[in-house]
Design a protein around this nucleic acid. Structure first.
Length: 105
DNA sequence: CGCTTTTGACCAGCGC
DNA sequence: GCGCTGGTCAAAAGCG
């Protein structure tokens, strides 16, 4: 029936589903934009020397439409990369913002 | 205990 | 001048 979660368990806290990019983020705000009818969540990268900001927008009626916006660049390797070998020459794993959803606008 | 998360309110700039 | 939005901060509570 409804694709929601009939169970009383919700893996997510309030957001539908955020794609992990391999970095750690700390949510520091959330707001709803009636202008675009979308929810906007504000995340900040946790690092002594890395305060990158990450904005996530998604439609409350269509959590499938996720819009990720990165503000800034990481100056430290991703924690996910640290736990495992990291591509021999760090090719360009530093800025793998390959999460730019492809939206036709 | 430490850490994280959530909500509300405030501020500033801009457009008309 | 007014209204509106965007963005951030603070505090509190709960959990392992």
């Amino acid at each position: 029936m409804d694709p929601q979660q009939p169970n009383s368990v919700m893996p997510n806290r309030m957001v539908p589903a955020i794609p992990e990019d391999g970095y750690e983020w700390r949510k520091y705000g959330q707001k709803y934009s009636r202008r675009i009818s979308m929810n906007r969540s504000y995340f900040k990268c946790r690092n002594n020397d890395c305060s990158v900001k990450r904005k996530v927008e998604w439609d409350p009626s269509d959590p499938s439409n996720l819009r990720i916006v990165y503000d800034g660049t990481h100056n430290h390797p991703s924690p996910s990369s640290l736990k495992e070998d990291e591509s021999s020459t760090s090719t360009a794993n530093q800025y793998d913002l390959a999460n730019q959803v492809l939206r036709p606008c």
